[in-house]
Amino acid sequence: MDDTHELVPLSDGDLMLADEHDDVRGMPVMDVRQHRVGEVEDILVDPQERRARLLVVASGGILGLGGSHRLVPVDAISQVRGHIQLERSDLHVDSGFDYDPAPPGPVDYRPVYSYFGYTPFWEDDYKAPYFLHGRW
């Protein structure tokens, strides 16, 4: 079974989200304890449905250098109210998966979903997060 699914960075500019309100780039990301995790640097989009699937959360570093870029499923978002509120801790995100903007080949995102405890969006029993049914 092929577990690779193409996701396109929204920053590439070749694709628009199905709902423009789902573009949360630049928003601060807070964890379940109200600790700042970082900010949304980019969004990985499913090109078939034009839906946000993974956030690229940037943290640390100075002027964009030396920081980390972690993948977080949009399913981990509990709400959006001027910032992204996650259902996980900053430590959970920090020890998660690095984002590679230029992977050498197809990417299997299943481990990212598994690490966060969510069903991948391509599975039959996937339940879309509330914000994919309308506005944040």
Results as ranks from 00 to 15, higher is better:
64 G>T: 09
88 R>Y: 11
37 V>C: 09
63 L>I: 09
66 G>P: 05
64 G>A: 03
37 V>N: 05
91 L>C: 11
40 V>K: 00
116 F>S: 08
110 R>N: 11
107 V>N: 08
79 Q>P: 00
64 G>Y: 04
65 L>S: 05
104 P>H: 00
102 A>T: 05
53 R>G: 01
57 V>Y: 01
56 V>A: 09
60 G>A: 03
47 P>G: 08
42 D>V: 07
88 R>P: 00
115 Y>W: 12
108 D>S: 13
61 G>K: 14
92 H>S: 14
109 Y>F: 15
64 G>W: 02
65 L>T: 06
38 G>S: 05
60 G>T: 03
60 G>E: 02
63 L>K: 11
84 I>V: 15
41 E>W: 04
45 V>T: 07
89 S>Y: 04
55 L>Y: 06
86 L>M: 06
97 F>H: 15
40 V>H: 01
73 P>C: 15
97 F>C: 10
51 R>Y: 07
110 R>M: 14
63 L>G: 04
97 F>Q: 13
56 V>Y: 02
48 Q>G: 01
73 P>M: 14
111 P>E: 15
58 A>K: 05
58 A>W: 07
68 S>N: 14
55 L>E: 06
52 A>I: 03
84 I>R: 01
51 R>M: 13
86 L>A: 12
84 I>N: 04
87 E>P: 00
82 G>S: 10
95 S>T: 12
95 S>F: 06
86 L>V: 06
86 L>H: 02
93 V>G: 04
101 P>R: 09
81 R>S: 13
58 A>D: 09
78 S>K: 10
74 V>W: 03
109 Y>L: 10
63 L>M: 11
109 Y>A: 03
63 L>Q: 08
100 D>G: 07
57 V>S: 02
92 H>V: 14
63 L>N: 09
68 S>Q: 14
70 R>E: 04
62 I>C: 09
